[in-house]
């Protein structure tokens, strides 16, 4: 494998890791506040659809993205209502949201566009365009660093950079602000927050809302950045992989970046059978390659995570007692 091929694979890695990263950070906010969210998948899917649909109709990806975030927020609101206000089971609520999104997106897409549950192909301003960072063309000729800058770092869409910037931002919010302290506390021991005179419900809704916005961005990127339009079930389990990455990352932002890049890399090499064949020296079945990220997810989670301690109050509705 030559240097340029490696760069191409890594470039794909970054693109494929972005939706995982946004979803993973979304889950991080929610779960750090004690609300398990298995519905990342559904929220991404809903956003992917509505972003693509509104972008197709209005011709503006930004309007589409706002609509997509709105869709994800609405589902997040339902999750919040079920699991915070009505103290329902968070897993069941999340699963329900996934089913709702999987069904509703296809039905609405069919009745709206009549293209078999898809949205029309997007082009031009209805998609996120790639951004060339300054001096990318000029620096291309510098050995090693030039191609890395031009191929790998430059030339992604806006949401890729947003995703990467969210990592330090998430860290800062969680560990350097009052909101972050309270958010982490409410996921560990909501009674401590409550007796300190801070609203448990308010904090948890805030966390769920942030989760909605970030899954909204993840979904928008899927249908307008990574691909050009919505197709049925296009999230393809990314919400679950993001959850796996979250456990792998032990609920920490920087680890989350590492975990998502790893899973992104697995998906990237699955797209390049030629590279694998070149490296390993024998042919690997396409089906196996497609399954590889999922198989490795299982292997990694089973064997390499060590003891990951989730937020102690995670999954449990807060009931005030004496």
């Amino acid at each position: 494998m030559d240097f340029l091929t490696l760069l191409q694979v890594l470039d794909t890695t970054i693109r494929l890791a972005t939706p995982l990263l946004l979803a993973c950070l979304a889950g991080l906010f929610s779960e750090r506040a004690g609300i398990f969210d298995i519905g990342l998948e559904g929220k991404m899917l809903a956003s992917a659809f509505l972003t693509a649909a509104v972008a197709a109709v209005t011709g503006s990806v930004l309007v589409g993205t706002v609509a997509g975030i709105g869709a994800a927020l609405m589902l997040a609101g339902i999750h919040g209502l079920a699991s915070i206000t009505f103290r329902g089971n968070q897993l069941i609520s999340g699963v329900a949201i996934n089913f709702l999104a999987a069904g509703l997106t296809v039905v609405v897409a069919q009745s709206w566009f009549g293209q078999g549950g898809r949205t029309p192909q997007l082009s031009g301003n209805a998609r996120f365009e790639t951004i060339d960072l300054p001096l990318a063309a000029e620096m291309r000729d510098i050995p090693i660093f030039g191609p890395i800058y031009a191929e790998l770092i430059s030339g992604h869409t806006l949401l890729v950079y947003v995703g990467l910037l969210m990592v330090p931002l998430t860290w800062w919010v969680l560990f350097r602000t009052r909101f972050g302290l309270r958010l982490r506390a409410v996921g560990e021991n909501p009674a401590a927050v409550d007796t300190a005179g801070v609203s448990v419900v308010g904090l948890r809704f805030a966390a769920v809302a942030i989760c909605g916005v970030l899954t909204g961005l993840a979904g928008a990127y899927l249908s307008t950045g990574l691909q050009a339009g919505f197709v049925k079930d296009m999230t393809a389990g990314r919400g679950y992989i993001a959850l796996a990455a979250l456990i792998f990352a032990k609920w920490r932002p920087w680890y989350a970046l590492g975990a998502c890049l790893l899973f992104g890399f697995l998906q990237a090499i699955a797209l390049r059978p030629d590279v694998i064949e070149g490296t390993l020296g024998f042919e690997v079945g396409v089906q196996l390659l497609d399954a590889l990220p999922y198989i490795l997810t299982v292997v990694i989670l089973a064997g390499f995570v060590g003891r990951a301690i989730p937020p102690r109050a995670g999954g449990e509705p807060y009931v005030k007692e004496r």
């Binding site: 009052r178 302290l181 309270r182 982490r184 506390a185 560990e188 021991n189 009674a191 401590a192 927050v193 409550d194 007796t195 300190a196 005179g197 801070v198 102690r312």
Partner: peptide, 17 residues
Amino acid sequence: KLVQNFSVLENVVLGAE
């Protein structure tokens, strides 16, 4: 009503920042 994996300081400050 303490957060187990917080420091003493963080627990004291929580809610009274």
